[in-house]
Amino acid sequence: MAEPAQVLAEGWGRALVFVYGVFAVAATGRSLVQLGMEPERAPLAYSLSLVAAVLYLLATTCLLLGGRWGWRVAGIAVTVELLGVLSVGVLSYLATDLFPDKTVWSHFGQGYAFLPLVLPFAGLAWLRHTRPM
């Protein structure tokens, strides 16, 4: 497997890293606050916030590191992120009792201008664009 055709964190990739970085900080901050203050209130929602935080951190790091492993792991992280935002988005409408408090992904990221929904698609498009030849 060859190296990616383009460095992952250059060009539009740099804009992507910026947004992923912001979300990594936002999700980490949110989960720390939630788990630190009242972890028993909504364990599922808060755990998902933590999962989201880890995924955003992982994707940001992999984009920055680049290389074929960075590319692969970023692909996995972004795919899981897409599945997460879709399933949590649907569940937060259907099974409201599961989510007494919000996560980054609730209502498809409504509290974050729906960027959490757009971001994985942008990520996948970028990874497709930079896929190793």
Binding site: E10, G11, W12, R14, A15, F18, V19, V22
Partner: peptide, 12 residues
């Protein structure tokens, strides 16, 4: 990124 990408990043 001295291109429109740089402008986009500032906008973000």
């Amino acid at each position: 990124e001295r291109s429109r990408v740089g402008t986009s990043i500032l906008l973000l």
